[in-house]
Design a binder for these strands. Structure first.
Lengths: 193, 193
DNA sequence: GTTTACAGACCAACTGTTCTGTTTTTATGA
DNA sequence: TCATAAAAACAGAACAGTTGGTCTGTAAAC
């Protein structure tokens, strides 16, 4: 049930935005009663926060499975855009991030979790890629930059002159990152908790 | 009067977000009557769209005056962050961009203007900087990337582990851009309409 | 005198939350 | 195993507060 509610919330956030994501709308989209939602999530912030946590859990990189070699930098960036950031879940996350900026209650619920996710996500990726400088902090900086660029691109998407131009931006950015990062050779991988 | 109303709207967008930017709130912040707002801007979308246009007009680069030499790439990126993107107006613009994604009425009012602004802004900057490849399209791509990164950074700002880390990201990104772009020598500048 | 600029009341629609019921599951004890 | 009590899961009505938009009234400008 909670899964069903959160999924409907993601759809609402994506299609309607944070403000228009109302209990009534989620209820209709999920095909359940009002009481079911308020029982599990007493406030709107609790509903959205729970949805965010679920999204982050799912997005904890389905992109590089443990048992296969890491993707090339270029491919990873491209598929991160297509499969994560520019997906219903990715767009929902951006709605939530924006809402956090001006909704103190929501921010309080998510601040620590988002910080932790950020750290663990960077740890995970830094274990498989390395900056041309060999510096681990630099690797994390570069991937942080990539994530922020992709999120920013989401805001620009509807105003881009053509879909091809957006792809050119992606390509140019990915090539630039490619020149700064490389896949770690397998024997150099040190497992991170 | 319209200026006063729009300024109050910017403050509201920045501090409260798009959803909480209500007529009542703008009215209170501007210290005027309800009728004054609805007279000039019959709908909320009209109010926000007018505010956006005004913001874009103001942001049409106060950063590189016509009578002085262009700033170095690094400096331009740094001051664009501090003075444009991460300002009340910049944050308001991001709120509006996000709202446009799910508010068709607002999107319709701003789509063309934002596209035009984008184009003219890139034209202006491409007249003063050039990609290492010498390709003008590449120059525009790079500056588009920069703008989207800065906007994305705005969403991340409240979740960054420390202000210093954010500055490290800025520094790293600016250095990366610096390696791809250079200021055009003065005699090469071709004026663009 | 006609249009524009402002003032402020008014209203229907909607929102988040609370609440009272009803059903289902779970825990308990003999 | 099974009765039964307690708790959790759901359903849906009710409500106070707010919102965007409209409407009438007044003053000023052209």
């Amino acid at each position: 049930m909670q899964v069903k509610i959160c999924n409907a919330t993601v759809t609402c956030l994506d299609q309607l935005g944070y403000a228009e994501t109302t209990f009534a709308e989620v209820q209709a989209k999920a095909g359940i009663s009002r009481g079911a939602i308020t029982h599990h999530f007493p406030t709107k912030q609790a509903l959205v926060a729970a949805t965010a946590m679920r999204l982050l859990g799912n997005a904890q990189n389905p992109l590089w499975p443990h048992d296969r070699a890491p993707q090339p930098v270029y491919d990873l960036i491209m598929s991160a855009w297509a499969n994560i950031v520019n997906s219903a879940g990715g767009r929902a996350i951006v709605e939530i991030l924006v809402a956090c900026r001006t909704d103190p209650a929501l921010f309080g619920m998510l601040e620590q979790s988002l910080r932790d996710w950020d750290k663990s996500n960077l740890s995970l990726i830094s274990a498989r890629y390395v900056s041309a400088t060999g510096n681990r902090d630099d690797t994390e900086l570069l991937w942080s930059i990539a994530r922020n660029f992709l999120r920013g691109l989401l805001l620009h998407e509807k105003f881009v002159s053509s879909p091809e131009y957006l792809m050119q931006m992606m390509d140019r950015f990915a090539r630039m990152m490619e020149s700064q990062l490389q896949v770690l050779p397998k024997n150099d991988v040190e497992e991170v908790e």
